[in-house]
Amino acid sequence: MIVEVVGGLLSGSLALLADAGHMVSDAAALAFSWIAIHYGKRPATLQLTYGYKRLEVLAAFVNGCALFVIAGWILIEAIRRFAAPVPVVGKTMLIVAFAGLLANIAAFLVLHGGNRENLNMRGAWLHVMGDMLGSAAAIVAAGVILLTGWTPIDPLLSIFVAVIILKSAWGIVKSSAHILLEGSPEFLNPTEIKADLEASVAQVQEVHHIHAWSITGERHMITLHAVPAPGISAREAMIAVQQRLATRFGVEHATIQIEEGACAGAHGGDTRCGDASSSGEPSRR
């Protein structure tokens, strides 16, 4: 990062300065990601009953937002360079960009084997990949400038890198915001869960009040109400539903409320169940 800042100022290259600016955020983003993973290993407490795992999602969200800011700065600076071209020293730019590429490749290889389902790890990986693309773009721009002297290639390729960064940032922000808003995971559609349980679990005749959400990108939760089939005990129905959720949907933590007769969430004598959230320990009515 320091070498690219110095090299960018000496050569006048926006591509190098843009990549250095991205690396500034990377240093902060990777530190934030590491802290989130470190604290995420702490056990749950009475105040934080799900533990600190959600910190990883928050880190991914912040990292994604940081990528938007960086890409925006690159685009604004590139437009300024088109309006007022700046001389670029191609040889200095090429040497510094090549050194940056080697460093970014090393970081990329370290993170490449990480869990891509983990939004925090994915955000860190995308930061480094963006850096690697920035260094590669700077090398191409330096080569064009040395061969042809056409300096507009520098801001032009910077815009290309910014667009790639924006695309990656949108995916991270969208996924992490969905988790923070307690949205249902894509593969845990409540309608599909209801249809599957009622068709596949003989111990229940009806399920409703289904809510699905995620603590992290890998840890998913479900709560629902279930009505046992005739002659089936509450315990049998609960175990059967939990087993089906684990084997079919991969959800190991599910809160099942067992009912007999009217729905526990019904009001005013209405036996139908709406969308109100309800969870708790298994009980019988």
Rank of each mutant, 00 (worst) to 15 (best):
G7R: 04
G12C: 08
S13P: 04
A20N: 12
M23A: 05
V24R: 07
S25I: 12
A28I: 13
A29P: 01
L30K: 13
A31Y: 04
H38A: 06
Y39N: 06
G40Q: 09
R42Q: 05
T45A: 08
F61G: 00
V62R: 02
V62K: 03
N63V: 06
C65L: 14
A66S: 13
A66E: 05
F68V: 08
G72F: 11
G72C: 13
W73H: 10
I74T: 08
E77T: 15
A78G: 03
A83P: 04
A83H: 09
P85S: 07
V86T: 07
K91I: 15
T92Q: 06
M93D: 06
L94H: 07
F98H: 01
L101A: 01
N104D: 08
I105M: 15
A106G: 03
L111I: 08
G113M: 05
N118T: 09
N120G: 05
M121S: 10
M121A: 10
D131K: 07
A142R: 03
V144K: 06
L147I: 10
L147R: 09
T148Q: 12
W150A: 11
W150L: 07
D154V: 00
L156V: 03
F160Q: 00
V163D: 03
S168H: 11
V173H: 02
I193W: 01
K194I: 15
A195P: 01
D196G: 09
Q203H: 11
V204G: 00
Q205D: 08
Q205W: 04
A212H: 06
W213V: 14
E218R: 08
M221F: 12
L224I: 09
H225D: 01
A234C: 13
Q243G: 14
T247R: 14
R248M: 15
R248F: 13
F249S: 02
F249C: 07
V251R: 03
V251N: 06
E252G: 14
I258W: 06
G261F: 05
G261K: 09
C263H: 01
G265N: 12
D270I: 11
T271P: 02
G274T: 01
S278D: 05
S283H: 13
